[in-house]
Design a protein around this nucleic acid. Structure first.
Lengths: 200, 200
DNA sequence: GTCTATATGTTGATAGAC
DNA sequence: GTCTATCAACATATAGAC
């Protein structure tokens, strides 16, 4: 996808920060979070190894920025999924289905949010961004339960199930199926419905 | 836990392979899968950097061996958990609870099975070992369903839910609770019961 | 804001002695 | 089976020129 080319001197990029993040995402998609390195993404971006330090404090800061992007993307996609349904149970099902879809078609962005090995204590904004993702389940969960504690439990139950299916999908646990992706999207939705209805 | 000491010359270890694996596990527990390196574990084991190559083909082979150990440990613990109950639904609940417990008290061994970034195609035995773990759910799942396809779906549903809770626990999603660990063990068991009963 | 150049450390892996 | 010694490759990060 990326067309490597040699840069001859010190031109400016429109937005090197963004270019570096994109290169990092591509790298993670290819080699997994373990294969990430700052040096490699500068090579792909066609800049020197020193260039990133005007935009990021260090190597980990790039991963943190990507994780933030990942959480934001999830918040928007899952929010839209929830909004696409009216019935609370179907909203939870839509979330779960979208969760599996996101893991599959934005793999790197998905993995970087929980597989990057970042110390969350050092990046408190990540914890907040992560919580915000689950907050999209609050309205349907509250509609389906009688108190706040139950609503929270339902949110956890649906999210945990969705996360597990997404992980299994990426790990190839369902590799034997003809359409593992489509099937797993359905599986995630089904489990969400079961968990939702049980709380009524 | 480990007492570092200097080795003066070329003595033999009782079982260097095992010693290296243990050092690797300790290292992963401290720094996460991303922090693993062959050089570091030789330092901790008190041997030269060349020593591991008589026991492992390369760096990844150490991770693969650990993953195998992780799957085996899971197979035994989850098998025992299932065996501790009689009612099929309670067997699934026991599995889920034990899954969360395993993630918490054998964190490194848990993470290495799905977070190590190993290419599973290169280590086919890992895929088999992973499948064997879920096979402990077969008897209760079959007892609760009317056909094989439904049993498989129930296995996936329970395992996905358990995995998600375990991940959230390790990621600190439940950090606000007073006893996040105990609560999450219960959560996992509850979701398993719901998923089991819904299939009747 | 990007470059060149460089310092410094780490890693994975091998050859050859014992 | 373990050591010593060594390698090339690669990493992060900084200083200073432009």
């Amino acid at each position: 996808m990326s067309i490597p080319f040699k840069r001859t001197s010190g031109q400016h990029h429109g937005d090197l920060r963004r270019v570096l993040e994109d290169a990092a995402l591509e790298l993670i998609a290819e080699r997994g979070p373990r294969g990430f390195s700052l040096a490699e993404i500068t090579r792909r971006a066609g800049v020197s190894v020193a260039a990133p330090y005007k935009h990021f404090a260090d190597s980990d800061a790039v991963l943190a920025a990507l994780a933030e992007r990942g959480y934001t993307a999830q918040f928007h996609r899952f929010g839209a999924a929830v909004a696409s349904a009216v019935d609370p149970t179907e909203q939870l099902a839509a979330f779960s289905a979208e969760y599996a879809r996101f893991a599959a078609d934005e793999r790197a962005l998905f993995e970087v949010t929980f597989r990057s090995g970042l110390d969350k204590a050092l990046y408190p904004s990540l914890a907040i961004a992560g919580e915000r993702v689950l907050s999209v389940l609050r309205p349907p969960a509250q509609a389906l339960t009688t108190n706040d504690a139950s609503a929270v439990e339902l949110i956890y139950a649906v999210a945990a199930s969705a996360h597990g299916y997404a992980m299994f999908l990426l790990e190839g646990v369902f590799a034997d199926g003809l359409d593992a992706f489509g099937e797993t999207v359905q599986r995630a939705a089904t489990s969400a419905r079961i968990l939702a209805e049980a709380r009524l």
